[in-house]
Write a protein that binds this DNA or RNA. Structure first.
Lengths: 201, 201
DNA sequence: AAGTAGACTTACTCGGAAGTAAGATTAATA
DNA sequence: TATTAATCTTACTTCCGAGTAAGTCTACTT
């Protein structure tokens, strides 16, 4: 299907050059057609970009969700989800760049699409964190605010670790996820257990 | 000083609109002068942008470093550094947007400047993490690779938590830093102590 | 008063890229 | 072989914004 081919090409060019530096002619060339065809199928550059973001975002969320979707313990599901995330980034770097390394400066539509992509991932993670806490049998010490905090930190850490992964290509995605789990989950569990760090007076 | 005023104005406009959408005329207007003056003082739009990034970056690194610079225990220094970081972001949001929310798609010079800014912060953090580990008296279980990993995750988490902070304006910067310390530091300490999470076989 | 230097502005040029009008090519029918 | 419809391209137009040439204003010197 033509539209798919165009989006494929656009994804590569956008990821490499960024929205502004990307030139529609180049996308058309890469797709093996001429510029007006791009406009015929996708309408505008902005719309083309949104189509790319949407596809990449759905692919990522789907990968995470499928990996994390089982009847097992939340922490195991979270680990699987994170592994899938790192695997996705390693394999389809263009999609990741698309979602991560784009200035949210752009138009309304683009900003909204990117925000929604992040929101989707965040919801998945927050959900698992919440279940993990509930299951831990803790006395509800942590509320929704704390769940959001942990989820936000976790997602941010994962984002950033994609850079680390690039510098350590020998490390398999699920090993990276394991490292992260050890950093976050144990700390969270112990905090739930009442352990705390605080600055000395 | 004229140059300073121009950079002030540019920072606001760049932060609000992003590099491409920012128009030099608007910057000039905001600075209360005309466009050619901007070019007289700063040479080019790109150079102007770099000047903004550099200033913001230096301010941030300085804030972190000064806060973290004491003879105390590494974890305390880290906490202070993180507190300063969150305070900086809360107070000078434009600078933060400048450093964080810009597409690295731009020109060589801009990309380099942004990378260097991040690199500076990362070095500071990694340094404290390393000291913290050494001091923990652990049997060198963790090498340089792990230090980098922790630093990368920590910086990423902090980056991302700036969003969380925006949604919870009542939470003071040092409280946010404390939350983060509890998530990360305790986990790290326990992992050093041999505790580990691993997926069941 | 006349000259001159520095600070500043108006009013352009010029290039680059999004978007499009009009025509060409191909393939399928009759 | 002529017709027509779908697909695609060439060759524009148009606009926007970075960068600049040339001139103006102010203040100070002589």
């Amino acid at each position: 299907m033509r539209e798919r081919e165009i989006v494929d090409a656009a994804l590569r060019v956008f990821a490499q050059r960024g929205y502004h530096a990307a030139v529609v002619d180049e996308i058309a060339d890469l797709a093996g057609i001429s510029k007006p065809m791009v406009y015929l199928y996708l309408g505008s550059k902005e719309n083309l970009f949104v189509a790319c973001v949407r596809r990449s975002s759905q692919a990522l969320v789907r990968a995470f969700r499928e990996a994390a979707d089982s009847g097992d313990a939340p922490e195991l599901r979270l680990w699987r989800g994170l592994s899938a995330f790192f695997a996705f980034v390693a394999e389809d770097r263009d999609s990741w760049v698309m979602l991560h390394r784009q200035a949210p400066e752009q138009s309304e539509a683009i900003t909204a699409e990117l925000a929604q992509a992040r929101e989707s991932v965040m919801r998945e993670v927050a959900d698992l964190v919440r279940r993990g806490i509930d299951e831990g049998g803790a006395d509800d010490r942590l509320g929704e605010v704390d769940v959001d905090f942990v989820a936000q930190a976790l997602v941010g850490a994962a984002d950033s670790l994609t850079d680390w992964m690039e510098q350590h290509p020998r490390e398999a995605p699920d090993r990276v996820a394991l490292r992260l789990m050890n950093m976050i989950w144990i700390g969270m569990r112990d905090v739930l257990g009442g352990e705390m760090w605080s600055p000395p007076e």
